[in-house]
């Protein structure tokens, strides 16, 4: 188990290098010269050239990338090109917001999605099941920014229950978490329903019933645990979706996390910020997937981690 974990952590290194290199490469070949944008429209060619040299933009992309990674390895994530503050400091302010929001979203999406999926499966083809299907369908297919704005209109503007933007109190978290977790809730609900229904029809569940087990025991003790494997996988994927989705949600709610930060940085081609954001998200997603894989072994005795 420890050996497996270590190997997986080591395997994360090439993945992270791949992701960051690709992002850096795309940033460099995409049109627009950051140096020109920084010095402004009235600057001379000389000024631009000087700025380019200062930022290291006159060097080949690979060299720039290696330099960046070398510094990052030493804890130096650079300074924002446009706002000249330290990226690391800014991140230490913003990352907790994003993580809090992400966890809130995933917690409600899992805590409600799985039980409602169970109900949907046990009461399949009834009105409850149909209602949940329709709700899931809406949440999964409506665009996140639209859902976000609808919540703002309904809960903030019309009902005046909750604040529409910012992050100063816990109440500010409710709407963003609600819209960020919506799609994930819907997929959890649907996957749980599908997998549990499948398991409920299997032979060993029939055996469990033939032993004289109550239906509740049959569902929770026998069937649900066997359906957990794909559901846990789903939660791992969920986390990646939530990290990606936070870019949109944070923008809609003017939420001070790294999502909204990242989108502004991409627009401005502020390379140090983009690179740091990607690095952080890649590491978080990588760790989540590792935790998910480790949980397989806990849930299913047939999974032998690190086997030959």
């Amino acid at each position: 188990m420890i050996k497996y974990t270590l190997r997986r952590i080591l395997l994360m290194i090439p993945v992270i290098i791949g992701i960051t290199f690709l992002v850096h490469f795309i940033l460099m070949i995409s049109p627009g010269d950051p140096a020109q944008m920084i010095v402004g429209p009235e600057a001379t060619l000389e000024d631009i050239e000087m700025k380019r040299h200062e930022l290291g933009l006159d060097q080949p992309q690979v060299v720039q990338y290696l330099k960046y990674m070398w510094n990052a390895l030493h804890g130096d994530f650079g300074t924002s090109w446009f706002q000249s503050f330290n990226v690391m400091t800014e991140f230490s302010h913003r990352l907790p917001y994003t993580l809090r929001l992400g966890f809130l979203a995933i917690i409600w999406a899992v805590a409600l999605g799985i039980p409602l999926g169970v109900i949907s499966a046990v009461r399949h083809n009834t009105i409850v099941d149909y209602a949940l299907t329709v709700l899931s369908l809406i949440l999964v297919s409506a665009p996140a920014f639209w859902i976000g704005m609808m919540y703002q209109v309904f809960f903030s503007l019309n009902l005046r229950w909750l604040p529409a933007s910012g992050a100063s109190t816990w109440r500010h978290y409710i709407l963003p978490a609600l819209s960020l977790g919506g799609g994930v809730f819907a997929t959890n609900c649907r996957t749980t329903r599908t997998w549990l229904l499948d398991t409920l029809r299997s032979d060993f569940v029939r055996t469990a019933r033939a032993k004289g087990n109550k239906e509740v025991t049959v569902v929770f003790k026998h069937a649900l645990r066997n359906s957990l494997l794909p559901i846990i996988t789903q939660i791992g994927v969920n986390f990646s979706i939530i990290m990606g989705g936070s870019v949109i949600t944070e923008t809609v709610y003017a939420f001070p996390g790294i999502g909204s930060y990242l989108i502004n940085a991409v627009k401005a081609k502020d390379v140090p910020i983009v690179m740091a954001s990607i690095l952080v998200v890649a590491v978080i997603v990588g760790i989540t997937n590792l935790v998910v894989d480790l949980m397989y072994a806990v849930v299913d005795p047939r999974v032998q981690l690190g086997g030959k």
């Binding site: 299997s202 060993f204 055996t207 469990a208 019933r209 033939a210 004289g212």
Partner: peptide
């Protein structure tokens, strides 16, 4: 029925491969 199943009337199912709970 819950009292009958397993205690009075037991059933042995056809396929032993899938008849046991894999995680118990």
């Amino acid at each position: 029925m819950l009292k009958l199943r397993g205690a009075e009337i037991s059933m042995i199912f056809q396929d032993p491969m899938s008849g046991l709970n894999p995680v118990m």
